[in-house]
């Protein structure tokens, strides 16, 4: 599961939905994988406003990845002379090419652990927790 996808996911329990602690989910015992993909600079530029930057910073810190800039990069920082800048390339690597292959995702509110196996996260809850 791509790190980008984590920006859109939260704990599946109804009682956690409106609780700020339920996002982002915290990776635990995560095995990361790096898969090269073609970069779409327009996508990187237009997905940035959709990211919760603080959450992405938390995520990279927890995964031991290089620190993100303090603030969301501006459009100017994403291109140099019309070509994707290093910042844009780094974001592409982080969001699109880095994925969690196995491990757990833990809710910061209820502490429920969701398993990630073979790159696929499972958010089905046991019936007593629905």
């Amino acid at each position: 599961m791509k790190l980008l996808t984590l920006n859109f996911l939260t704990c599946a329990r109804k009682t956690c939905k409106s609780n700020a602690a339920a996002f982002p989910l915290h990776p635990k015992e995560a095995e990361l994988e790096q898969v090269e993909t073609d970069m779409n600079p327009l996508f990187i530029k237009n997905i940035l406003p959709r990211l919760d930057w603080e959450a992405m910073k938390t995520l990279t810190t927890e995964l031991g990845l290089p620190n993100l800039p303090a603030e969301t990069p501006s459009d100017e920082e994403l291109a140099t002379d019309g070509e994707p800048s290093q910042t844009a390339k780094d974001l592409h690597t982080l969001l699109m090419e880095t994925s969690i292959q196995s491990g757990k995702l833990v809710c910061g509110n209820c502490e429920h652990e969701y398993a990630v196996k073979e790159g696929i996260a499972n958010f089905l809850l046991p019936s007593h927790m629905v």
């Binding site: 599961m1 791509k2 980008l4 996808t5 920006n7 859109f8 996911l9 939260t10 704990c11 599946a12 109804k14 939905k17 409106s18 996002f23 779409n40 996508f43 997905i47 959709r50 699109m96 790159g119 696929i120 996260a121 499972n122 958010f123 089905l124 809850l125 629905v130």
Partner: peptide, 22 residues
């Protein structure tokens, strides 16, 4: 031409694992 970007498929019940109003 360029296609859209695919994120992932996740196992879950309907949209319950998605952040609200996204």
């Amino acid at each position: 031409k360029p296609a859209g970007i695919f994120g992932d498929c996740v196992v879950g019940d309907l949209a319950t694992s998605l952040r609200q109003q996204n």
